[in-house]
Design a protein around this nucleic acid. Structure first.
Lengths: 132, 132
DNA sequence: ATTTACTACTTTGCTATACATGGTAATTAT
DNA sequence: ATAATTACCATGTATAGCAAAGTAGTAAAT
């Protein structure tokens, strides 16, 4: 929440949480791609480091959803400091979906740029790797 | 909808529409900033050019919402080729909110980069695209 | 004059995401 | 025991975007 003056109040927290919708899924897959596997609390820590604050009640249903969609699989592992952990990793479908999400994300970044500048970005791009 | 093989089906349309949530609002404000004012059909055309396909049933409620939040104002203008048009433009609050959204968007781009690369991007920015 | 086509604005019902909140269960320390 | 910590899970709410259908103004065709 940001207050500009007495009359203008901008709820930037809500703005941010709305903008993140759908991107969170992309973040989870990306984190699992880089780490190989991870359990929920570790994922939350990493998201927090990247300033993408997420709470348990958001992450757990998301992981379950992605698992049910066949994007993730998990294995149980005992922990010496608490209850057992579910270590999630990408399935083959998850890897392919992540590639799709990479493309979608790149498209969106290009789109925003186009809207901000009203120019075409097909030659001198560099806004984002399109040669991947 | 993208079919990878017989077993793997990726609904990339849904992915894209989910990722765009909250970003659309940013796009509208940006378009109005550049154009000064515009009516709904013109905004839809511009979004379509930028590959951000939007339908009437999405845009009109969004414009009404932003107007009710005090971000936009509009004036009626007669048209010689159809019914009168609502020409929308940014209010002072809309301009300030857009600046906030610019910051939020930049933060998100940086966040995604951090998650993809696990590096810090505060000095040498490059908003996106490293050697991935 | 009526119908048809086009344009523009509006409304309703649905789905999906994220959040707030509270609950369950396993391990360890006291 | 029991309290603290860690980790996983479930329910209800708010809201964005979409599909689909409706309303209304203008202009051209019949």
């Amino acid at each position: 929440m940001k207050i500009i003056d007495d009359n203008i109040i901008i709820n930037s927290d809500n703005i941010k949480s709305q903008m993140r919708k759908g991107i969170l899924e992309y973040c989870i897959l990306s984190i699992l791609e880089r780490n190989g596997e991870a359990y929920a609390s570790a994922i939350i820590s990493e998201l927090k480091d990247a300033k993408m604050i997420v709470v348990e009640g958001t992450l757990y249903p998301l992981l379950t959803r992605q698992k049910n969609q066949g994007l993730l699989k998990y294995r149980w592992e005992e922990s010496k400091q608490g209850p057992p952990r579910k270590y999630y990793s990408l399935t083959e479908k998850g890897k392919l979906t992540l590639k799709e999400l990479d493309n979608v994300w790149n498209d969106i970044v290009i789109t925003i740029n186009k809207i901000k500048t009203n120019e075409n970005y097909f030659n001198n791009v560099k806004i984002h790797c399109d040669d991947m």
